[in-house]
Design a binder for these strands. Structure first.
Lengths: 215, 215
DNA sequence: GCGTAACCCTACGCACGAGTAGGTATGCTC
DNA sequence: GAGCATACCTACTCGTGCGTAGGGTTACGC
């Protein structure tokens, strides 16, 4: 057994940090395509150009591997959004920038992120990680709303705030799913549509009012 | 082996139609609690007070069984919503009634429906069934919006309509999830919150405008 | 140039759970 | 009360795929 003509040009003996990233790349790809359960560790290892025990040695169990994927992609996403929303901007501008960053990210990582995210819904082991991510998003949105409310001297119950934010995040996730399923669709345009429904609401939309990005 | 002291009082030799419903009940319960993959046919059969081959004889494969669950619960849900929205009512009233019916249903079938619904996201085999259900909902919402728009002489692109509806449905699903996770929460109140964000939008909400159920 | 640690492999064990073979009992019809 | 269909069971087979045992090889420090 010495015929070892792999497709990958980069060949042997890579340092751990590099291999780990390759494995995660492969894992994201395979998990996305097959779903958590149908994905096999063999295929992931194979796709990473490595053998299975290496994956176990570096990233651990299948579940741990999936969580690692979720975590890496989640972190990347949060980073992509982080810079977008400066607290001193008016609320609509903050919301708009956040949405733009979010949909931009999802659009650029279609099967990467969105499908992975879809996988995590359901199956208990990942509910925690997923809920944490969503929780952070909800917190951001709720914080933004709260900030704007206080600025105009108003206030509102914590649960109300949470639920409204939850709804907004949910709508956004849904459109992210939609975007991931429609490869021809434009991220920017999707963000605008989301902004319209989130900011204006059905009433205004039915009245013919529309929101458009300033500048 | 004649010790057959089952917990279920109703014992032996039931007609097919009845047993099928019992099996579906058990399946919904187990799928909800464990998730599709972790659920075992043995446990479902056991929970239905029947042996495994019966399940196969009546409802077929595990996947077919799951689809059957999805289908039954989905139909029930659509029926629950169906009567709510009379086309001659104004748009806000239609939306409100639809939301109320929807959250009422989910609230009454917490682990039944919502968790089952969550399971279906992801795993390819069920994507079709799920997409069909969601599609019907989106269609209803889009139809309602379109109707209202035409009534006021306005019109809008089909994709815009679809995406906006999609966002609204997504937000609603999210709050349904939230409701399913918060056993103490009230369905009616959740519906009101959803109505607020959907109908008024963040802008109005931040201005202190609120929507309240008429009557 | 030699030890040692990191990298990497080819196998296999093993549990778990879907689906089935083949047989038994009970009610229903005539 | 014979015949037949329907309800129902116990006890298997068998594929699949996670996780591992145990061993080889390349780089790197000294």
């Amino acid at each position: 057994m010495l015929a070892r003509v792999s497709s990958t040009p980069t060949f042997k003996r890579l340092p751990r940090a590099v291999r780990e990233q390759q494995m995660l790349d492969a894992a994201v790809k395979v998990f996305s395509r097959r779903g958590f359960h149908a994905a096999s560790m063999d295929e992931i290892a194979d796709d990473a150009g490595i053998s299975k025990p290496m994956v176990y040695a570096y990233l651990g169990t299948k579940e741990e591997l999936f969580v690692a994927c979720l975590h890496r992609e989640g972190t990347r996403m949060m980073e992509a959004i982080a810079g977008a929303a400066a607290p001193e901007l008016p609320a609509d501008e903050r919301l708009w920038r956040g949405l733009r960053a979010f949909f931009g990210f999802v659009g650029a990582h279609r099967d990467g992120w969105a499908v992975l995210y879809r996988q995590a819904r359901g199956s208990q082991p990942f509910a925690a990680e997923l809920a944490a991510m969503r929780g952070r998003l909800v917190e951001v949105v709720a914080g933004m709303l709260d900030h704007a409310l206080r600025a105009s001297g108003r206030e509102v119950g914590a649960t109300d705030l949470e639920v409204v934010s939850y709804a907004l995040v949910g709508a956004t996730e849904s459109l992210a799913d939609w975007l991931a399923d429609h490869p021809e669709a434009d991220a920017e345009k999707t963000a605008t549509r989301m902004m319209n429904v989130a900011w204006l609401g059905a009433d205004q939309l039915l009245r013919g009012v529309t929101w458009r990005p300033g500048v």
